[in-house]
Design a binder for these strands. Structure first.
Lengths: 209, 209, 209, 209
DNA sequence: AATGAATGAGAATTCATTCAT
DNA sequence: TATGAATGAATTCTCATTCAT
């Protein structure tokens, strides 16, 4: 599948609406309106609403993995530096693609759309495999402890970032940060979160603490 | 609102279906069928599908807070012990009310149903307030460090537990634990998760570690 | 399935429209309008347009076979008399349920709707079996010849009646019978057709001619 | 209208699909796909889907009549021989152009597409006229009886052949002829049918028998 | 209090046709 | 002449809700 301009328009409109109002809560008509295309184009291009969601997943997934791979292959850095880079990478990913990650989080909550579930499963497996290599490398070099439960560790990474990003309006309110602009707030959260997670990961992974 | 037997039947049927297939993905007819009641009963009792969801939230929220309060008021325990109890409390809550927490997680991802959003907001505020008291108490007693970002810490607690519980089928597969029964697996996860989070919280909160 | 008044209304409206404009050529909306019911009632009652067609087939088939059975069991008549009665029975059936038989003829022309094809197959098998008994009986009694190809004979019976009834407007024109009222014409055709087929069947079945 | 290669491709694809799934049940897109031409070509060449059906009728009708005329003009044969030739002609026509005859049978069942109805009417009139000449000729020569109802007779000819050919899968099953190849079965039917109809027509037309 | 029947609004999708090139 | 893209209308079906009883 190649991504013509129209297709991308549609996928991006769908992404925003699915994030806001959920897949089932979004009429195809609204996607068409938002994308500024004819209603029938969506079936014409993607076949169905569900296939559109699949296309969106493939579209977004394509780029993600590559970035991560190149990052982890960098030989000039220690394993801990790479882990720290990984943390920042995840924070950026969630902050810059909030819509997509909301959709993905929601899809992980049920098994309704099997094609999507399979895509996510594959996606997660590949990610986890890369992280595993990184941890093993650190362990070989003696930087990291033995016996690290990677899925548990990833749950903390992804869970913390995801939860904070998706409930950031609440965080804003509770910490009286309503005066900050969206960008300022984003930077604020990024900094806090980065420091917090790097601290936790150092505790999880290294002998010192 | 009192909870007649029929009402509870309906809410529990709705809870399961909303968890599996989302609010918008669940027809009222299916709820009626699952609950074994007449379709019209649901509008009749709750007014609308959305009001039913609100009722469910109130029903589930009522109990949660009380347990937590009594737990945190126990004077015979150190602050760290209370934090550890809090961790186990959250794990239990998510594991035993997976359906409800899936719904709540999903609702936090969007702002569709405002009434619900407000309920969740209040709910989280009260919880956070209780936790704040606990942390302050620990800080006063010198058990805990200063400058603890409570929302960040809670994001790690809730995020990690939530992510792991809602994607546990993935965890099962990645760790080759398919042979375990559901109950065995639950216990397995609970133990791992409890240890992991207690370790992290010790690092976050205390001077040692 | 019981046949409530509304259901029968819908089935009869559908029958006329399907006969006139074919199944695929008839919008459900038109059926609803003709039956004087709400559009959604059709899905509500029958599940789908196709299920409605199935229901119609079952509704019409139920009665047909019974009549035929009782007719063929009559012991007071010779086999040839029964064959003659059978001929008149078929003529009546096609003349009085023209709509239904148009639909059935059309469905036999393709294998689109499998459920229907199966129903027709069963229907024809039962009919043919009854006719076979009748012929065998006549052969035993020495009234009829040996070596009668029953499907071929039935093709002539059904084919002739069906073709004439479904193209009767053409017959009317070609024979300059436009002045006859519908009822007069019906009687005219019935008489001609009956005589014609009885003559043919006598030739097919008996030794004399 | 001349028949370019592309046009014939399209008409033949349409013929097969209309036979299988009916006019209304066949999307223009499917015809284009089957014919291996661009979707827009069909409107471009024929104007509309309905005009395509008309074109197909004209295309098929052109040849039929001519053959029949030449056959009936043969002076070297008795009238009964010509009638027998006519019977075989019809059997061949239905067997070799099953698709087209299915479509025509279906179109005769309703009055939806008026242009087509008129074409069929004309077609049948010309055919009947030719047959009438043949019968009159036989009557003049004293070969045939007086008072022959030609439309009735034609109904038996066309009805029997048409019914048997369009329901031959049923005939196959009922007579346990599933082992025969399509070609063997075709020959088998042709022989049986030919003999059957010639016998019937002899009875209808001649004094003996 | 409880329910079977009914309904209007809106859902996704398909369709034949047209248009710009 | 030929076509890929586009579209408006219409299709079937589902939905939450209401009404008469």
């Amino acid at each position: 599948m190649e991504y013509s301009e129209k297709k991308v328009q549609i996928m991006e409109a769908a992404e925003q609406l699915f994030a806001e109002k959920s897949f089932d809560g979004t009429p195809v008509r609204d996607i068409a309106d938002k994308a500024g295309v004819n209603l029938a184009m969506i079936s014409y291009y993607f076949g169905s609403k569900e296939k559109l969601l699949e296309a969106l997943f493939n579209y977004r997934a394509e780029t993600g993995i590559l970035k991560m791979e190149s990052m982890l292959l960098d030989k000039s850095q220690t394993s801990l530096q790479k882990v720290n880079a990984l943390i920042d990478f995840y924070i950026d990913k969630f902050q810059n693609q909030t819509c997509f990650h909301k959709i993905m989080s929601r899809e992980q909550l049920h098994n309704q759309r099997n094609e999507i579930a399979v895509l996510i499963q594959q996606f997660k497996k590949r990610n986890q495999e890369l992280v595993k290599q990184l941890i093993l490398e650190g362990q070989k070099k003696g930087e990291f402890k033995k016996n690290i439960d990677i899925p548990l560790m990833m749950a903390t990474l992804i869970g913390t970032v995801s939860h904070l990003v998706t409930t950031q309006h609440f965080y804003k309110e509770i910490n009286n940060l309503q005066s900050l602009s969206d960008d300022e707030f984003k930077i604020h959260i990024k900094k806090k979160l980065s420091h917090h997670l790097k601290f936790l990961f150092k505790a999880i992974l290294t002998h010192e603490a």
